[in-house]
Write a protein that binds this DNA or RNA. Structure first.
Lengths: 232, 232
DNA sequence: TCTGCTGGATTGTTCAACAATCCAGCGATC
DNA sequence: GATCGCTGGATTGTTGAACAATCCAGCAGA
């Protein structure tokens, strides 16, 4: 799941006709999960810290059972770690996790871009690139980060696969948690702004092999950088 | 999640030294989820059928809340579909789902095999091939199916990524559910037995490009076949 | 035939309780 | 002084019961 769309059948998109006319009232458990996801992404909850059921239940004014349901969901997304009879903890970066995450990203991002995509989807990639440029011009470090996430999300969206989108959304949520603002300096953002432009241009020109190679190179370098900062 | 390993840090494998000396006593909720997973894989619960909380709770002799936790887990794995205020149903094949699933498989399987793997991991692939041959010789249709799943699981395991393993395990569970024994005749199995041998041989010889191409061709053809049977 | 209501069934959520488990602290022993 | 074993408190795991919210099938009436 992961905050992503969950319209069962057709792929989420500008689905013009036949909109889901369903007043979506998220259940309490879902809202709790959403709130926790937010706090995790925002850095209020740092990796390793413990989440006590009773405390969270009281803070949010919900039942302990409901909190448990939310915990289960977030544990499934690897954002929380459940240790039986001990408690749930905010996930921490274990040895090999960085490589693990980037292995998934290489698999799904490169495969998606190599298969190309519809003009609309490509336009979405372009939009993310421009979003990044605007954020850079405005010196909006926050915006730069999310623009980059939109860029990579848009690349995966090229494949028009709900499942891949969900997987990518989860991976990005993990990265937000682990590589939080605090740990990333502006230095990082300088490089890939131009690089995203290059990748996008290659994609638009139909040079899919080249686009894939560029993207792969970026991911490899990014993994190296992250590994250099956080151990192993 | 997904019956797969969840030893946090190092990748599951023949981890000789430092074994987890932890008496793993699965919680009740986990056992309920396991039982349901089993019934889903075995075909006792057919796609589309409804699962009533109270009924399952009584059948398994557990509390309704516990059943709910198990439901949440399986819904996260896409094996069950939760419809708010209506109930949970065994997931059904929606339009585009076949393509969706195969898109994921192409991404992670091909990427994994193209990156090669350690001799031990390659040996595991070989073992799955031989397992298939033995099942074929014994006319064991059941065994043929799981041998094939082991084969593709072993290919993904080449990448040594817990996350990819988990994703693959979920996808395979979905396929067991959708393309159940009932729907697959022996005809299917005849082809890929030889093909798996070919792929494995290419892998062992270090011809990774070729192995990837063969695997990709197989997946494309398999998708076509499945699409031909179950509509779009 | 269609509309609108109504009652029963099921889900969503809460609450309170208890068993199982863990952990920190504290003596007792060597 | 270090190790061992115990004990008490805190937290999780699970249950059962309750109630509100929601849905659905069936039925009455136009």
């Amino acid at each position: 799941m992961a905050g992503a769309d969950q319209e069962s059948s057709e792929h989420a998109g500008f689905d013009g006709a036949r909109a889901r006319m369903r007043l979506r009232v998220p259940s309490v458990a879902e809202r709790v999960a959403e709130e926790l996801r937010y706090q995790l992404a925002e850095g209020f909850l740092v990796p390793g810290s413990k989440l006590t059921e009773a405390t969270i239940a009281e803070d949010l004014g919900v039942s302990r059972n409901t909190v448990r349901e939310a915990f289960a969901e977030l544990a499934g997304e690897r954002l929380l770690l459940r240790q039986p009879n001990k408690g749930v903890y905010v996930a921490t970066l274990e040895a090999g996790d960085i490589h693990d995450v980037y292995t998934v990203r290489r698999a799904i991002e490169v495969s998606s871009i190599r298969a190309g995509g519809s003009p609309e989807r490509i336009a979405a990639v372009r939009a993310a690139v421009e979003e990044g440029k605007r954020a850079a011009a405005a010196d909006d470090n926050e915006g730069l980060g999310s623009a980059n996430q939109h860029f990579h999300g848009a690349i995966v969206a090229l494949a028009e696969s709900n499942r891949l989108d969900t997987i990518m959304a989860q991976i990005l949520a993990e990265m937000r948690l682990y590589f939080h603002k605090a740990t990333m300096n502006a230095h990082f953002y300088s490089d890939w702004l131009a690089e995203n432009e290059q990748i996008c241009a290659a994609l638009e020109a139909g040079h899919l092999e080249e686009a894939g190679d560029l993207l792969l190179a970026y991911l490899n370098r990014s993994e190296q950088q992250q590994t250099a900062i956080h151990g192993d």
